[in-house]
């Protein structure tokens, strides 16, 4: 097991390096570079200035040289400087990354708490009115676009009922408040974006839970468990769900991989200070350093959570052994 994890970690590292070079190359292939944007914003710039600026920023060098320079600074813990925001990347990304994490993880937990019990019940009552109702709810969640749901939520809770803020991350200008009040204030801003994000996830997790559970409850060992005199719910959770968990592990862990990628649409609709919009803006505006860091976060997360899924799978299913 340990050697498997070490080997997979090494593989993961290799893939990260290869992908980072690939992403870096793609970035340089994009039309325009930071200097071109400077030219547009400064009509008095001369061609000598352009050459000097290109040399200054190292943009005249071949891609692989620039890549190695970038890796060198990253390795020293320096993520670079955001050209658009004129602050170090860590300074601009750090707080936004935390906001995004809070949003994504809360919506993930909420959706799992709702989807798993509902999915299990739908599977146990398959073919009944209950099942149809739950399925309808799930399909609506999958089909309704989150921006539309977001707007509807704003209209209901902010515009009509005035009980929740329409957007933002926290109340600006609040002073002399306790940490608890601060958290409460932030939570108020989280509710609507979490709901709009969670609904889609509920739909997806619910469908997976239902089908995994249906499959598991059809097995012979369920009958054996009943014949042992175990109570219905012990059979359902201890035997049925324990087996249904295996296919669910992959789906759930892979969803966690996207926690840091940001929910661009929800964050935009609710003007939430997350990383999603930042990433989009950085690509559009040739803000290389910000874009590269967010690429690397996404890539690493997907690879690491893949590894976690594999390990969890080995833990949950004794039939799988790693050599």
């Amino acid at each position: 097991m340990t050697s498997f994890i070490l080997r997979r970690l090494f593989q993961t590292l290799v893939v990260i390096v290869l992908l980072s070079y690939f992403c870096y190359t793609l970035m340089t292939l994009m039309p325009g570079d930071p200097v071109e944007l400077m030219i547009q914003s400064n009509p008095k710039i001369t061609s000598e200035d352009v050459t000097r600026l290109r040399q200054l920023y190292g943009l005249d060098q071949p891609t692989y040289v620039r890549y190695f320079n970038w890796v060198k600074t990253i390795a020293q813990g320096d993520l670079g400087y955001s050209r658009t925001y004129r602050v170090p990347v860590s300074e601009i990304m750090g707080p936004k990354l935390i906001n995004t994490m809070v949003l994504s993880i809360s919506s993930m937990i909420l959706s799992l708490l709702i989807a798993i019990p509902l999915g299990v019940i739908a599977a146990l009552r398959a073919g009944t009115r209950w099942d149809y109702l739950v399925n309808f709810f799930a399909f609506a969640g999958i089909s309704i676009p989150s921006f539309w749901l977001g707007i509807v939520l704003i209209i209901i809770f902010a515009v009509l009922l005035h009980i929740l803020p329409a957007g933002g991350t926290f109340t600006v200008g609040l002073e002399n408040i306790t940490t608890f009040q601060m958290l409460l204030d932030r939570a108020k801003y989280l509710i609507l974006p979490v709901l709009s994000l969670a609904y889609m996830e509920i739909g997806i997790f619910l469908r997976f839970t239902r089908s995994a559970m249906l499959e598991a409850m059809r097995n012979d060992y369920i009958r054996t468990a009943k014949a042992k005199g175990l109570s219905y719910w012990t059979v359902v959770w201890g035997h049925g769900f324990r087996n249904a968990l295996l296919p669910l592990i992959t789906v759930i862990t892979m969803s966690f991989a996207h926690v840091f990628a940001g929910a661009t649409i929800s964050e935009t609709v609710f003007a939430y200070q997350g990383v999603g919009k930042l990433v989009y803006d950085s690509i559009i505006s040739n803000d290389f350093n910000v874009a590269m860091v967010s690429f690397m976060i996404s890539v690493t997360m997907v690879l690491v959570f893949n590894l976690i899924a594999d390990i969890l799978y080995g833990v949950a299913d004794p039939r799988i052994t790693y050599k």
């Binding site: 097995n219 012979d220 054996t224 468990a225 009943k226 014949a227 042992k228 087996n243 949950a316 039939r319």
Partner: peptide
């Protein structure tokens, strides 16, 4: 139903046809 659960696996037990599938694979 709960009285019956007492009987099942207690006073009255059952063995099944397929030993391959009748046991829970993950326990």
């Amino acid at each position: 139903e709960s009285e019956m659960e007492e009987v099942r696996g207690g006073e009255m037990a059952m063995i099944f046809q397929e030993p391959m599938t009748a046991l829970n694979p993950v326990l």
